[in-house]
């Protein structure tokens, strides 16, 4: 039998050298501080307790939340419920076809997602139980984790699980000294530093901050301000989508 890899066509991994033009325009026509077009919709799966589908530019993510339910494996007693996250990149999500099984970057994404959400979910409301969050990245166009966090928070709210506030996330890449909001995969490839911020905008609390590279405090401040602005924009979209889905369900079941 032929080796599995032999049928994969050769694709030169040519990433563009310059991601920002002289006029300050990015490859996809955005300005430096402009967000990609976002689409968020709750209740995408019929079988899950709560679910959401999110698109940010080319990045497409589907999230299903199950529970709170008794955890399958026996664990020690805990007053606080557990939040289990599993991020999976579909084998067709990236340019190069992915191998079978969980990779190290998926494990890292799962861990980061769990930290970002644990602070928001009121875990004392479901002692001894756990919620399972399954997140599938259908297409990876850059900033998967931020989209996954936003979608997962929406799915948890859709499941009716108590949270302090919805969580939204946003990232900034630094390419050749310039700060790019919401980077695509091509832009992130050229970055020499990045900031990811997940926060609860209404409560004004940060749940997760991931920084790579060397930053001066002035530039860090600028990057954080950009991220917070992005999070606030996403928050408005999330709230609107959640409230309208809840309103519809109420109107359908109302009984005099």
């Amino acid at each position: 039998m032929a080796r599995r890899d032999t049928s994969v066509p050769y694709q030169p991994q040519s990433r563009p050298e310059a991601v920002v033009s002289d006029t300050g325009e990015r490859l996809d026509g955005r300005g430096l501080e402009e967000f990609r077009s976002a689409f968020l919709s709750p209740h995408a799966l019929s079988q899950a307790a709560g679910s959401a589908y999110a698109e940010c530019g080319k990045t497409k993510v589907m999230v299903g939340v199950y529970g709170p339910r008794q955890s399958a494996r026996a664990t020690a007693f805990s007053e606080q419920g557990r939040v289990q996250c599993d991020v999976k990149l579909a084998s067709f999500a990236t340019r190069q076809r992915r191998r079978f099984g969980q990779s190290t970057d998926e494990r890292e994404l799962s861990g980061l997602l769990a930290t970002a959400l644990e602070a928001a979910v009121l875990r004392h409301t479901f002692p001894k139980s756990c919620i399972d969050i399954y997140c599938l990245v259908l297409e990876s166009g850059g900033s998967e984790l931020t989209v996954a966090i936003t979608a997962a928070a929406m799915a948890i709210a859709d499941a009716g699980i108590a949270m302090a506030d919805v969580v939204t996330a946003c990232s900034v890449s630094r390419v050749a000294g310039q700060l790019l909001l919401d980077p695509t995969a091509d832009e992130a490839f050229r970055e020499d530093g990045s900031v990811l911020l997940a926060m609860m905008p209404a409560a004004n609390l940060v749940t997760q901050l991931v920084v790579t590279g060397e930053w001066s405090s002035a530039q860090m401040k600028q990057a954080l301000c950009l991220c917070m602005g992005g999070c606030l924009q996403l928050d408005a979209v999330t709230r609107k989508a959640l409230a309208s889905s809840e309103e519809q369900a109420l109107a359908a079941m109302r009984i005099e």
Partner: peptide, 19 residues
């Protein structure tokens, strides 16, 4: 159903984190 009852439900709907 909304068309019959004439618009929004009487009870206000809030989202997670709303005051």
């Amino acid at each position: 159903f909304d068309q019959t009852s004439g618009g929004a439900p009487e009870t206000p709907v809030v989202c997670v984190g709303d005051t």
